[in-house]
Amino acid sequence: MAAPSPLAGFYRRFYRRIERAIVPVLVLVGWELFSRSGVLPRALLPAPSQVLVAWADWVFATDGNTQSYSGRWIFDTLASASRVFAGFALATLLGVGIGMAIGWSRTVEKLIEPLLQVLRPVPPVSWIPLAIIWFGIADKPAIFLVFLGSFFPVLLSTIHGVKTCDRNLLRAGAMAGGSPRKLLCHIVFPAALPSIFSGLRIAIGSAWMLTVTAEMVAVKSGVGYVLWDSYYFLRYDLVIAAMVSIGLLGFLSDLAIKLMAARVLRWQRGSTLQAKEG
């Protein structure tokens, strides 16, 4: 059998490097061509090149075309990110703690879970009027909404992780003299971590969606506020730039959780490889 040529190997390596960029590039090119075709007014559907010009001024203050937002991107991003991570951190602490308790104790499950299951279907957006009444027009309503949107994915994933823990491991730990507290900390919690990280990835996406919603209504700063304010002034290029910014920030947040999970769950990767080899 003939060995593959160096040129074929080069093409394969090159394709692997650009593979993930193929579809986004095609979408951008198609969008640019459609916008320039005149089917829709360019003011209603700005081309990617036009969005890039507005975004560059928003970030670097290149020519002042975004007026009061020129050069303010980092401040708007930090304002949104602070609300996201404050609400997300609170949701993680409470969601994991309560989820561990519900998954471990039938008594706690019977006492708390009915109330949580009643609250869970209520859309977080419907809490906006109460959040404004309770916390006013500031960061607190946005943090509260982010918390609500992030809490239930973390809670349910934690409960699932605890309940699906291998009972043989628990029996082995109990036979070795482990107390319920030690079993919970050293067996159940590590076993639930893969499910918890899955919940965290869902929750961080919800967190970014909710903070943008809150900034449209209850806050006067952040990427969501820029998006809504630009809509009122018919600056759809800046609206799209804000949408793309939110998508990138959400992507980077999810990537950070994935990297953390890969580091924390190294033991899972090792056990998976052993299972495959076996």
Rank of each mutant, 00 (worst) to 15 (best):
L7Y: 11
D76V: 01
L40K: 03
G38N: 06
Y69I: 03
V25A: 10
D76L: 02
R17W: 09
D57N: 09
V25M: 08
V53I: 09
A54M: 02
W58M: 00
Y11W: 12
L33Q: 12
S49G: 14
A8I: 15
G9W: 03
L33I: 08
F75P: 00
S68L: 09
V27S: 14
F10P: 01
A56K: 01
V84M: 04
V23Y: 15
T77W: 07
L44P: 12
L26P: 00
V39L: 10
R12S: 15
V39A: 10
G38Q: 03
T77E: 11
L44N: 11
L45D: 02
R20T: 03
F75R: 04
F14G: 03
F60C: 07
S70N: 09
D76I: 01
E32H: 06
A21V: 06
T77I: 04
W55H: 01
I18Y: 05
A8H: 13
A56G: 12
P48N: 08
L45R: 02
V25S: 02
R72N: 12
I22D: 13
G38V: 13
Y11E: 15
N65S: 14
A43N: 03
S35R: 05
Y11P: 04
R17V: 04
R36C: 14
Q50W: 02
L40F: 12
Y15N: 09
A79C: 01
L45I: 07
A79Q: 00
G71R: 01
A79H: 00
A21W: 12
T77L: 09
L7M: 10
R13A: 14
P6M: 02
L26Y: 05
W55Y: 08
V27D: 11
F75E: 13
P46Y: 01
A61E: 03
V27A: 15
I18G: 05
V27M: 15
A81D: 00
F10Q: 14
A43C: 01
G64W: 01
I18Q: 08
E19P: 07
V29R: 04
I22T: 14
D63I: 03
F60L: 06
T77M: 10
T77P: 05
W31A: 12
S35T: 11
V51K: 07
R36W: 11
G9S: 08
P24V: 13
F60N: 07
G30L: 14
P41E: 06
P24T: 13
V53F: 00
S80C: 11
W73Q: 01
L7C: 09
R13E: 12
I18N: 06
D57K: 03
P41L: 08
S49I: 15
Y69K: 10
Y15D: 12
R20V: 04
E19R: 12
V25Q: 08
G30D: 15
Y69Q: 13
S49V: 15
S70T: 06
L45N: 01
S35Q: 06
E32I: 08
Y69H: 09
T62D: 06
R20A: 05
R12D: 15
L78Q: 06
V29C: 06
A54G: 08
L40C: 06
A43I: 02
R17K: 12
A54C: 05
R16G: 13
W58A: 00
A56Y: 00
Q67P: 02
R16M: 07
A61G: 05
D63F: 02
Q67M: 09
D76R: 02
S70Q: 10
P41T: 04
Y11L: 10
V51G: 08
R83L: 07
P48V: 05
